[in-house]
Structures are given as C-alpha cells and as structure tokens.
C-alpha cells in the first residue's frame, strides 16, 4: 500500500493533469464517512447520557439496585430488568454454547462433504429469521408446549434438588424468564455455531492427523487438540452470542411475560431491559421516559463491553494466525 502511495505522489508531481485534486477530495470524503462511524457511537452514548441524566440525578446510585418500578408513584429502580437481562442471557448461553459446539463438530468432522454446506446454511438461516417471528412462534407455540410438557418434568425433578430447586418453580403459564432464555438460545446458536465452525476449519490438518495417528478418538481430537488450538476464537464467538442475547428485544418482549416483580423461580414471568423499553416507551414521559433511556444506556454499555471483549479475543486470534503464516 505504501509503495502505491509513493508511486502516486511521484506521478502526481511529474504530470500536471494528475487528478491530485480529485484524489484528495475522494480520500477526504472516505475519511469523513469513516469518521462518521465513530460519531454515531459517541452520539448514541452522549445523547442517551444527556436524556438519562435526570434519572441518575434523582435516584443516584440507588437506580441500579432498587427493585421497585412504580409508574404511578414515579419510583424507578433498574434491578429487575437488569437481573432479567443477565439471567435470560445466561440461560441462553448455557443452552446455546453446548448445542453450537455440537453443531460445529457435526459440520466440521462428522458430516459427509455433500451435507456440510446445506446444513451450515440452514443453521445460519436461523439467524436471518426476524426477531419478531421468534416472538410469535415462542408465544403461540413454544411457550404452551413448554408449559405443558417440559415444565412439569423439570419442576418435579430439578425442582426437588436442594439449593437449585427454588429456581425451577413457577406457574404453568409458559411465558417466563426461562422460556425467554430458551428462545434466545435458539436465536444465538447460529452466530456461535458459525464462528466455531470457521475456527475448527482452520485447524491445520497435520495437527488433527497426528492426534488421530496416536490413536485418539474423534472426541479426544476435538477436546484436546482442536479446542485448545481455537480457544480464543471460541471464547470470542461465545461473547458475541452473549452480546446478541443481551440486546434482543422483540422475541423477549413476546415470551418473557413483562412482569416487573422480582422472583427466584425461573418459571415466573419477568422482564428484561429491552422488553421493558419496548412495552413502556411510547406511553412514557418525564422521569419515566428518562428512566427508560437510562435503562437503554445501561444496556448499551453492557453490550459494548461484552462485544469489545469478544472482538478482542477474535482479533488476538487473527494476529496469531497471521503470525504463524509468515
């Protein structure tokens, strides 16, 4: 690139009709729009902070740990939506990661060649289905099925286990924190699975074949060779999925139940930051509006941090790979 640059400056110096003006205009425009990406990010942060300020000024730090969200008395605490967001995303990760891992293993190591591409595309199409469709399907089909068949089984088995038993309680209505977590899991599987698959595919064949030649089983190759080799990328993919799950709105708004009460049972209706915003934003004003924008800011910062970590892991991997190539 630099040689090209210097060649151009030399040409520009020599000839009069060099298009130097056009070049600088073109480069300037490109730079302007690249800078715009940064402006959008800081614009979002600053504007949200400005609008959320009345809430932080009014409730102080208590906004983060108070659990009452009372529109009538104008009392707002963000604890329930924050906990709801984190718990639904955690459930999504706990279910989504092993499933994505299995799918990636199947596509890279088990499927015959003619099957790899169609299966991969089908899984990726899950990511293309709009969020609101997951919401409708979740509310009208998945939630009733779950409440009738899965939930009683889970309550009667896991519900009796000491310590964790209290989490598996709740009314059999289907819309709950847990249902939201499962739907989120399905939505993030394509993202995590396709990153894992891409990572697994770049593992050097020699490395895998050596392990096989030593008498390893396929699983041992996956667990002891492929996974350690692709660790950073796999973690990056998981964090990316987590970032997606945290901010998902419409699907969750349909199936989470939208109740701003704090419950230990995962089968009780709950709320997340995004679902609370989707439900209340258009009827809000004054301090209520400001509190919702404060929620948006909190969500944005959480996802920003999670996605930055994801990106950091993936970047590190890119550098390692570039290093090993040269």
């Amino acid at each position: 690139m630099t040689t090209l640059e210097s060649a151009h400056t030399q040409v520009a110096k020599k000839s009069k009709n060099s298009g130097a003006l056009g070049d600088s205009i073109f480069k300037g425009t490109a730079f302007f729009f690249a800078a715009m990406v940064l402006v959008v990010l800081f614009g979002i942060m600053l504007l949200l902070l400005k609008e959320a300020w009345p809430t932080f000024a009014h409730f102080g730090f208590g906004f983060f740990y108070h659990s009452e969200w009372d529109v009538v008395n104008n009392q707002y605490g963000a604890l329930v939506p924050i906990v709801g967001t984190l718990v639904t995303s955690l459930i999504a990760i706990l279910i989504g990661v092993p499933v994505s891992f299995g799918i990636a293993i199947f596509i890279t190591l088990m499927a015959p060649n003619w099957m790899k591409r169609p299966v991969g595309i089908a899984i990726e199409l899950l990511a293309a289905v709009p969020s609101i469709i997951y919401g409708m399907w979740g509310l009208f089909y998945f939630a009733p099925w779950f409440a009738n068949s899965m939930q009683p089984i889970m309550t009667s088995t896991l519900g009796n286990v000491p310590l964790i038993g209290q989490f598996f309680q709740g009314p059999p209505i289907g819309v709950s924190i847990f249902t939201a977590g499962v739907v989120l899991a399905i939505m993030i599987i394509p993202f995590i699975a396709s990153i894992m698959r891409d990572m697994f595919e770049v593992v050097p064949t020699a490395l895998k074949e050596s392990a096989f030649a030593m008498g390893s089983t396929t699983w041992e190759v996956v667990w002891k060779v492929i996974l350690p080799y692709t660790k950073a990328g796999v973690i990056g993919g998981i964090m990316l999925g987590l970032g997606r799950a945290l901010g998902e709105t419409m699907a969750v708004a349909f199936v989470v139940g939208n109740s701003l009460e704090l419950n230990t049972g995962l089968f009780y209706p709950g709320a997340t930051i995004a679902s609370t915003m989707a439900n209340e934003f258009n009827e809000a004003s004054g301090l209520h509006m400001s509190s919702l924008i404060a929620l948006a800011l909190i969500l944005f910062i959480i996802t920003f941090v999670v996605l930055s970590i994801a990106k950091w892991f993936l970047l590190r991997l890119e550098k390692v790979q570039e290093g090993s190539k040269t």
Partner: peptide
C-alpha cells in the same frame, strides 16, 4: 473495532437514539 461493535449493538438502543 467500533464498527464491529455497532454491528451487534442492540437495535432498540438505536431506536431510542433516533427518538431523542
């Protein structure tokens, strides 16, 4: 880096941003 973060940023926050 920022672009990749925006790629997965919650779309509802973008909605709130444009609203304000």
């Amino acid at each position: 880096f920022i672009n990749d973060v925006l790629l997965s940023a919650p779309s509802i926050v973008v909605g709130v941003f444009v609203y304000t």
